[in-house]
């Protein structure tokens, strides 16, 4: 190996070593402070009992709590995560289905839902419930 080649190899090796070292430090800091359970697992675990009661195919509506103040990105992420949890049943972002699943962060009373024509089928806690849209198919 010529001295120039040695120098060139050392340059790449040095840059690679320091770059990956810096990244490792960043990740190990993050790893040390990480939550016990990751966000996706934590969120989708709320829907595991819903998944167990659903059929192997079909569609289900979706309702997030109105005015919960979630930004658009978070709201979208949560809808997609509910789909991730409930696959292969397709989650439609609408209550215009016979059944729909909720993603509530604030308290919503069954009374206020009943006023909209939504009957509680089953509540799972943590803002997750399945409702039946009693008006569905009647229009």
């Amino acid at each position: 190996m010529s001295p120039r080649t040695v120098l060139a190899v050392l340059l790449v090796a040095g840059v690679a070593f320091f770059s990956i070292g810096r990244f490792f430090q960043e990740i190990s800091d993050f790893y040390a402070r990480r939550p016990e359970v990751d966000g996706v697992t934590q969120f989708t675990a709320r829907y595991a009992p819903v998944r167990a009661m659903l059929p192997e195919k079909g569609m289900i509506g979706y309702m997030a709590d109105p005015g919960a103040g979630a930004d658009e990105l978070t709201a979208t992420a949560e809808l997609y995560l509910v789909q991730y949890a409930l696959a292969p049943v397709i989650v439609v972002n609408s209550t215009d289905q016979r059944y729909f699943v909720t993603n509530f962060h604030t308290t919503v009373t069954t009374g206020s839902m009943a006023d909209q024509g939504f009957r509680l089928v089953r509540e799972f806690g943590n803002g997750v419930a399945v409702f039946e849209n009693e008006k569905w198919g009647k229009r």
């Binding site: 070292g21 490792f24 990740i27 993050f30 790893y31 697992t41």
Partner: peptide, 20 residues
């Protein structure tokens, strides 16, 4: 080996923290 080892280990840490 050292660079690949650190990179591989870092990858495992990320995958353990965010398995999905």
């Amino acid at each position: 080996g050292a660079v690949a080892g650190v990179a591989g280990f870092t990858m495992v840490l990320v995958l353990v923290a965010s398995p999905h």
